[in-house]
Measured scan of single mutants.
Amino acid sequence: MTYKLISNGKTLKGETTTEAVDAATAEKVFKQYANDNGVDGEWTYDDATKTFTVTE
């Protein structure tokens, strides 16, 4: 399945996607992506749209 990340960081804003077997796997990928880009904030997940959002 395709999962989307919306980043509302102070230094990184935008969207990216990943293919993953489940939401937990996608979350690990996205949290590593955010960490690699210096984004640390509040996370939410919408199962209906398969979208994670991180806001700093």
Rank of each mutant, 00 (worst) to 15 (best):
N8E: 08
T51C: 05
K50N: 07
A26K: 00
D47V: 09
F52I: 01
L5A: 02
T51E: 03
A34V: 08
D46H: 05
V21L: 12
D46W: 03
D46M: 03
Y33M: 08
K13P: 12
T2E: 08
I6V: 13
I6H: 06
F52K: 00
N35T: 13
T55V: 10
G41D: 01
M1D: 14
T16N: 05
G14H: 14
F52N: 00
D22L: 03
Q32I: 08
Y33Q: 04
N35H: 15
T49Y: 04
K10W: 11
E42A: 09
D46G: 00
A34I: 07
T25K: 05
K10C: 14
G14R: 12
A26Y: 00
G41V: 04
T18L: 14
T17N: 06
Y45P: 00
A48E: 13
A24V: 11
V39E: 03
E19G: 05
A26G: 01
Y3P: 02
T49F: 04
K50I: 02
F52W: 06
L5V: 03
A23C: 12
D46N: 09
A20T: 05
D22N: 09
A34L: 11
F30N: 00
K31N: 03
K10E: 08
D40N: 13
E56Y: 09
V39F: 11
K13L: 12
A23E: 07
V54E: 02
K50F: 09
E56K: 05
T11F: 13
V54G: 00
V21I: 13
D46K: 03
D46F: 03
T49G: 04
T2V: 13
E15H: 09
D22M: 02
S7T: 15
K28M: 11
T49V: 05
T44V: 08
I6C: 06
V29S: 05
G38N: 09
T11C: 14
F30P: 00
E27P: 01
N37M: 14
T18G: 02
V29M: 09
T51W: 01
M1P: 09
T16P: 04
K4P: 03
K10Q: 11
N8Q: 10
D22C: 05
K13Q: 13
D36T: 08
T18D: 01
T51R: 02
F30E: 00
G14S: 12
Y33D: 02
D36V: 09
